[in-house]
Structures are given as structure tokens and as C-alpha cells.
């Protein structure tokens, strides 16, 4: 298929960016979106132009590195999919594809489609863990965990930290990311011990980092490549209120 790509090019966080048009011919529909960008970059390099910079790593949809806003949607048009698992058969011959980076104050652009998501790491450092030192744990089966709680925890823990929730949210809010971690840990008995402090610290940091506020639009849930549910935001709100009262 032949495609017209409208790609955001930006030298660094301080420069002004702009869209540049590229044309690609005879792209195999079985090729992944990132492989399509690889092909473009090979051509750019041969033409002595700067290749397009984007984050990518595992290319099997689990590391959370890839982060591209395609035709108005984070990770593109396919449901429950990261960019690396998005295939060109989801597009049509002759399509124009608009390709932008995540846009949020807390995710400044580094270059082109690559953004700085270290604010997510900062959030986890504020308490997104259970304080247990290596070697001090009791036998793994000492505390039984209700299976439904374990399943809920697992579904929340499936977050890959890609930032699509922030990118999708009209307010650039990080509530789904924080909510997923809060409710993962709060639904396990091991995580309850620190639950109060964790939610207070993480929410305070989330505000300090300049993420927007949640207005429950649900865009995050729709765009999350791992299907993390809004229920985690509700859980976060509940834990926060409980810890405040």
C-alpha cells in the first residue's frame, strides 16, 4: 500500500516542532507500524536526512516503550494494542496518517516522537512499592489471598507504564496509572500495611508533577493497551478519601 505520513519533527524540548510530510510506497500490510517507520528511516538515511526518532524496545507489546499518537489516538486505531503490535493492515492504501508524540506538560518532547516519561518513575518512587527487604519474607503461602483479589490485583498490575492514559486524557491526568498501582497493592494483604501513606504520597506527587485532574471521561480506559479499568481510579479515590478521613 502507498501512504502519506504527516510526522511531527522536533529537534529538542525547547525547539518549536512542525509536521513534515513523507510518502511511502508499497508497504506490506503484514508489516508492523514500527517496521513501517524503520523502512521510512532507512530511506531517510539513504537520502542523507535525519531519521525519525521514537522510543521502542521489546516490540511485543509489553515493555511500554513505544508511545506514538496516531490519527488522533494513542497507539493508533486498534483496540488493546501498542504501536509495536499495530499492523499496517489496519490502514488502507492511500491513507494519510498523522503521527504525533504524546503531548502533556509532564511528558516533554525529547525529539520527534520521543518523550520523557520519567515522571512515571518519580510517581512509583513515592510509594508504589511494598517496603520489604530481601531475605525477610515469611513463607509465600503463610498469608492466603482471596483469589478474586489476586485476579483484580493482577489486572491492575498489568499496566506497562506507556503513558497512553495521560496521552488520551483531555486533561493529561495520570489517575489511571496511579490508580492501577494503588489498587494493585491495596488489594493484596501485603500491600495494605502502607496503603494510607502510599496513596497520600503518590497523589501529592501526581499533583506536584503537573498532571491534570481526572474528570472521569473514561478516555484512558478506552485507550489503555492493557485494558486497565476505570474501577482502578474509583479505587484510588476511595483509598484517598479513606486515608484522608
Amino acid at each position: 500500500m502507498d501512504l502519506k505520513l504527516k510526522i511531527w519533527r522536533q529537534k529538542d524540548s525547547r525547539s518549536r516542532g512542525r509536521f513534515v510530510n513523507y510518502f511511502l510506497r508499497e508497504i506490506d500490510p503484514d508489516c508492523s507500524f514500527l517496521e513501517m517507520l524503520d523502512i521510512l528511516n532507512e530511506q531517510l538515511i539513504s537520502r542523507n536526512e535525519e531519521p525519525v526518532v521514537f522510543d521502542h524496545e521489546c516490540r511485543e507489546g509489553i515493555c511500554g516503550s513505544c508511545s506514538i499518537y496516531i490519527n488522533g489516538r494513542p497507539h493508533g486505531p486498534d483496540e488493546l494494542t501498542t504501536v509495536c503490535q499495530l499492523h499496517m493492515r489496519k490502514f488502507n492504501h492511500g491513507d494519510t496518517i498523522v503521527i504525533e508524540p504524546w503531548r502533556a506538560r509532564s511528558f516533554p518532547v525529547i525529539r520527534d516522537l520521543m518523550v520523557d516519561r520519567s515522571s512515571f518513575d518519580t510517581l512509583i518512587r513515592e510509594g508504589g512499592y511494598i517496603s520489604v527487604n530481601t531475605g525477610t519474607a515469611p513463607d509465600a503461602n503463610t498469608i492466603p489471598v482471596n483469589r478474586d483479589d489476586a485476579v483484580f490485583a493482577m489486572d491492575a498490575a498489568a499496566c506497562i507504564g506507556c503513558g497512553a492514559c495521560v496521552a488520551a486524557c483531555k486533561n493529561a491526568s495520570a489517575m489511571l496509572f496511579v490508580g492501577a498501582k494503588i489498587s494493585h497493592l491495596a488489594s493484596l494483604p501485603q500491600g495494605r500495611v502502607e496503603a494510607r501513606k502510599r496513596v497520600q504520597d503518590m497523589v501529592a506527587m501526581m499533583d506536584a508533577l503537573g498532571f491534570g485532574n481526572c474528570t472521569n471521561t473514561g478516555a484512558c480506559e478506552v485507550e489503555c493497551p492493557k485494558g486497565i479499568k476505570m474501577a482502578n481510579i474509583v479505587r484510588l479515590n476511595r483509598e484517598y478519601l479513606k486515608s484522608t478521613l
Binding site: F19, Y69, N71, G72, R73, P77, V98, E100, R103, A104, R105, S106, A168, K170, N171, A172, S173, G210, F211, G212, A219, V222, E223
Partner: peptide
């Protein structure tokens, strides 16, 4: 303020 620059193509979610 949390999103100083808008997307050029609107959110389809």
C-alpha cells in the same frame, strides 16, 4: 496547563 500544546488531530476515543 497540563497540556500546553494540543494535538493537531482530535481525540477519537
Amino acid at each position: 496547563i497540563a497540556r500546553p500544546r494540543r494535538y493537531s488531530k482530535a481525540n477519537f476515543s
